[in-house]
């Protein structure tokens, strides 16, 4: 199901090293979570447990923070993250159709990751590119003046 998390010893060591540094400063939780998200691609319970022990914060509290912010995730995300803007301008120009097309072609619901682990589909609020509406992003790349027709092409390119 979806992408797999790989918790290797190297990655765990990296997390410990990061925490060692942040523990010296006040409020080490947020920077640690940012690092964990980067290192593992998500912050599942076993990683939360490591952080809880090291920072003396309860796992429930950590999970509260992880699930509050959209940037963090508990489940692994796909290799490519497709975010379709549903901000007002994009929505008016038909971005819902683009989102539906991605959902249909990738066979995933919004917020889910495709079975091959290649794509995570997200809906996002305004990304500040209203002049280019409707827009969607794939990883860090912005696709301007999007259309339903673009969806298949983009998926094909990324699958290669």
């Amino acid at each position: 199901m979806g992408a797999k998390v790989n918790i290797t010893d190297e990655k765990v060591d990296e997390l410990y090293a990061v925490m060692e540094k942040y523990k010296q400063e006040p409020g080490p939780l947020m920077p640690t979570l940012h690092a964990a998200q980067r290192i593992f691609g998500c912050i599942p319970l076993p990683v939360q447990k490591i952080i809880a022990n090291e920072l003396d914060v309860s796992i429930a509290r950590i999970n509260g923070v992880v699930t509050f912010y959209g940037h963090f995730s508990v489940e692994p995300k796909g290799e490519n993250i497709v975010s379709v803007c549903l901000g007002t301008a994009c929505y008016v120009k038909g971005s819902q159709g683009i989102l539906d097309a991605f959902s249909h072609d990738l066979k995933v619901e919004v917020g889910e990751t495709s079975e091959d682990g290649l794509f995570t589909l997200e809906a996002t609020r305004c990304i500040g590119a209203c002049g280019l509406a409707p827009v969607f992003t794939v990883n860090d790349e912005v696709y301007a003046n999007g259309s339903v027709q673009m969806v298949k092409k983009v998926i094909q390119t990324l699958k290669k």
């Binding site: 914060v57 309860s58 796992i59 429930a60 950590i62 999970n63 509260g64 699930t67 509050f68 508990v74």
Partner: peptide, 28 residues
């Protein structure tokens, strides 16, 4: 002094429980 319960998610999806609503008997 344990903090077994906390708020998770937000808005209308908010719930109180152990992390990820994990089974209480395995939540410390």
């Amino acid at each position: 002094g344990l903090g077994i319960l906390n708020f998770s998610n937000r808005g209308s999806n908010t719930y109180i429980g152990p992390a990820q609503f994990h089974n209480l008997e395995d939540a410390g």
